[in-house]
Amino acid sequence: MAYVVAHEDTLEALEQAAKRVGYEVVKALSALPVSQRMARAVSILKPPPGDAALPDVLGEEAAWGILAGVSSQLWAEIRVIINHESYHPIKAPGISTESGLQIWCYLDAVDGTVKLAGLGNEPGRLRSANDGAWAVGLAFTEPTSKALEELLLSDFKVSAVTDGSVCEASSSRNPPFPRMAIATGVEVQGNNHGNHSYVTREGVGAPAYNSPCTITLHTSTNQRLSQSFVFLDAFQTRTPGDESLAGALYARLMNRNEGGAFDVLRSYGNLSAIVRNMLGWRCPPGTPHGASIDGTWLEAQCSGFLVVNENLHNLIPAVPIILGAGGIATDFEGVPLLNRRLSAGRCSVLYASNERIHKDLLLLIMKIRRSQEVENIPQDMTTTRKS
C-alpha cells in the first residue's frame, strides 16, 4: 500500500508548529511558580468567558505567537475553534480572506487544568501534588473553504498531544510512555475506510523542531481482554441512561474471570491518558527510543479506552492519533468516528487497540444495553396472559 502525502510542505509546516506549541506551552507552565498556579485570569478559549485558571491563559499565550507565525508562513488566517459555533481568528498582517481559504485549529493548552491549578485549594495550599498527568492538545486542517459547521474530524490533517512531562529528563532507551504523539493525514490508495488515513509518530521537542518525526507509535497487538487494562471514563454522564450504562460497564469489565478486563483504569485528563496508556513502540534493533537494544517491542498494557458522553474537543486530536497508531475509533454503536461532524457534539467513544478487542468491547456494550432494555419493559408486557 503506497502512502502519498498531500500538500507535503503545508503538512510539514503544521507538524513543526504542533511540536513547537506543545513544547513551549509545557515549558512556560513548568516555569510558573507554584504560588501563582491558583490565580484566575481571562481566557479566550476556556469557559466560562473571563474566568479561567492562570495556567490555561499562559498556555494560550505561549501558543498565539507560534500560530501567528504559521499564518505568516502559509499565508492563511488561522481560526482557533472555541466551540462548534465560534472561533478566535489569528491573522498575520497583510493577509486577505478574499480567497475564502482558512486553516481551522483546535487548541486545548491545558487538558486537565486541575492537575496544575489544584483542586479544593485554600490560601497558601495548592492541592496538585501526586499526579501531574496533563497534556496540550492541538490539531490543524489544511487550508480549506469549509465553514465551521461543515467540518468533519477527518478534515484535521495534523493532530498532536504533548504530555505535560515532555520537558522532564528521562531515559532515551526506555521511556515509560511517549511524551508527544503526532498524527499526520495521508492519502491512501486502496484504503477500505475512504481516501484518508493517518500515521502516528513520536514528536521531537526543542531544540529539534525542524527534525522529522521518524519513530512510529502503535497500539497493542494483545487480543486478550482478560490480559489488558481498559480505561473507562464516565465522568461526563449527562444523558438519560448514561449512569446505568457506566455502572454496568464497570461491573462487567472489573470481573476478569467472567469476560472482563485485567483491570479498569480512570484518570482525569483524557488526552494525557490516551498517550500514557494506549501507545507504544515497535522499533527495530538498536533504535534508541522505546525498545530494548535487541528490538523487543514495548507495547502498551491498555487495549481499550471507553468514554461515556465524551467531550467533542477531545475527539479532534484523539481520533486521528488512535487511527494512525493502528487502533480503531468508533462510537458505542460501532460507527466510525472519523467522518463525524463537529456540529454533532458529544458522543460516547470506544478506542480499541485492534479489531479483536474492539469486537469484544462492542459486544459487551450491546449485551448491557439489551439487558437494560429488557429490565425497562413494563411488567404487564413481559407477563404471558393465561387463557
Rank of each mutant, 00 (worst) to 15 (best):
H7D: 12
E8D: 08
D9F: 12
T10W: 02
T10Y: 09
A13L: 05
E15N: 12
Q16S: 11
A18H: 05
Y23C: 04
V26H: 03
V34H: 15
Q36I: 02
A41T: 13
G50W: 01
D56W: 01
V57N: 02
E61W: 03
I66G: 00
L67F: 05
G69A: 01
S71D: 00
I78R: 00
R79N: 02
I82E: 01
E85C: 02
E85R: 14
S86D: 03
S86A: 06
H88A: 04
P89C: 07
K91V: 05
A92M: 03
T97R: 00
G100H: 06
L101A: 04
Y106P: 01
T113V: 11
L116A: 12
G118H: 02
G118Q: 09
E122N: 12
E122Q: 14
P123A: 02
R125K: 14
S128I: 07
F140R: 06
F140C: 00
T141H: 03
E142A: 15
A147D: 14
L153E: 10
S154E: 06
K157R: 15
V158C: 08
S172C: 10
R173F: 11
R179H: 14
M180N: 05
I182S: 03
T184G: 04
E202A: 14
V204S: 10
V204T: 14
G205C: 06
G205N: 01
Y209W: 11
S211D: 13
S211V: 08
C213P: 01
C213G: 02
T214P: 03
N222Y: 07
L225I: 04
L225M: 01
S226K: 10
Q227L: 05
F229M: 07
F231C: 11
L232V: 06
P240Y: 12
G241P: 15
R252Y: 01
R252S: 00
G259A: 04
G269Q: 11
S272D: 11
I274D: 05
I274M: 13
M278E: 04
L279Q: 00
G280V: 08
R282L: 06
P284I: 06
G295Q: 02
L298A: 09
E299G: 03
C302E: 06
F305M: 03
V308W: 07
N311A: 11
H313C: 09
A318I: 14
P320Y: 09
I322C: 12
G324M: 10
A325K: 07
D331N: 14
L338G: 04
R340E: 06
A344F: 09
G345H: 07
G345Q: 08
V349W: 03
A352K: 00
S353D: 07
E355L: 10
R356D: 07
H358C: 10
K359I: 00
L361E: 00
L361S: 05
Q372D: 04
E373Y: 05
N376C: 14
M381T: 13
T382P: 06
T383V: 15
T384H: 09
